[in-house]
């Protein structure tokens, strides 16, 4: 029963956020602040984590190939295809779900337990318009941008690893010919879906915070778990839909 009520409340937050975006709710200055908080402040985190993951993945792939065929001619092309259609946006979003999701939930949660949300309502302000809508718009824009940056860094770091550890020629590795428009479209769809899900889940958890600092802690943990879970589930659904639409030729 509680789960059903929570699902209903999450749906209400989602619908209210979309309605807020459509009626241009939220303060303009706040959007700029959130673009900076979600985007600029996450760049280093995304670059470092996706860079390392790219290095590990390229090393593992080259290592496996060296034992089987020793032919590295396809590795770069397949690697970038996988990054564009899946790893770039998904890993970026998972990182954002921890950094941004936790931040949003803690901020809104502490406002909830200190009655600041009620004070907003007393001023005739819709808390979802004021707090979630700017974060939603900023997250959608920045998840897409960071997915592109993270994907490129991942590919670049993978190429460097392949060259230095296995002597793979960079001209062979950095092969973009395997990337088709459908992969780019898939990346955009995933990044936009993840970018929308993270602030909604985090905002929902923040608004459900009760009591004191313990409630804020609960909201933060729930936001990270819920945001990560949403990203994984959306990845599966969107990938499955893409396979279905393309007849398995992705």
């Amino acid at each position: 029963m509680k789960a059903l009520r929570a699902a209903r409340d999450l749906w209400i937050v989602y619908v209210s956020t979309i309605a807020g975006v459509l009626r241009r709710g939220g303060a303009r200055g706040e959007l700029v602040r959130q673009l900076h908080a979600i985007g600029n402040k996450s760049v280093l985190f995304i670059v470092v984590t996706l860079g390392f993951i790219g290095m590990v993945m390229a090393y593992e792939a080259c290592s496996q190939l060296s034992r089987i065929t020793g032919d590295y001619s396809q590795i770069g092309g397949q690697f970038i295809r996988l990054i564009v259609s899946d790893f770039g946006p998904t890993l970026t979003a998972l990182m954002l779900a921890t950094r941004v999701g936790a931040g949003i939930a803690a901020e809104i949660g502490s406002m909830k337990v200190t009655e600041q949300i009620d004070a907003l309502r007393m001023s005739g302000v819709q808390p979802i318009d004021y707090l979630i809508v700017p974060r939603f718009i900023a997250s959608v824009i920045m998840t897409l941008l960071l997915s592109v940056i993270g994907g490129l860094v991942m590919f670049g770091a993978g190429g460097l690893t392949a060259e230095h550890s296995f002597g793979v020629n960079p001209e062979i590795f950095y092969d973009f010919t395997q990337v088709r428009p459908r992969h780019l479209i898939l990346m955009c769809i995933k990044a936009l879906a993840y970018g929308a899900a993270i602030p909604i889940v985090a905002g929902f958890c923040g608004l459900r915070a009760r009591g004191s600092s313990e409630g804020v802690g609960w909201a933060t943990t729930a936001a990270v778990i819920g945001g990560s879970f949403a990203v994984i589930v959306l990845d599966f659904i969107i990938s499955a839909a893409a396979l279905f639409v393309t007849g398995g030729d992705l």
């Binding site: 200190t114 009655e115 600041q116 009620d118 004070a119 907003l120 309502r121 007393m122 001023s123 005739g124 302000v125 819709q126």
Partner: peptide, 20 residues
């Protein structure tokens, strides 16, 4: 609809509820 009424009400909260 409640927002319309609330604009005619002032409220001091127990724990201030100031925007930090």
């Amino acid at each position: 609809q409640l927002g319309v009424v609330r604009r005619r009400i002032g409220m001091l909260f127990q724990n201030y509820a100031l925007f930090d």
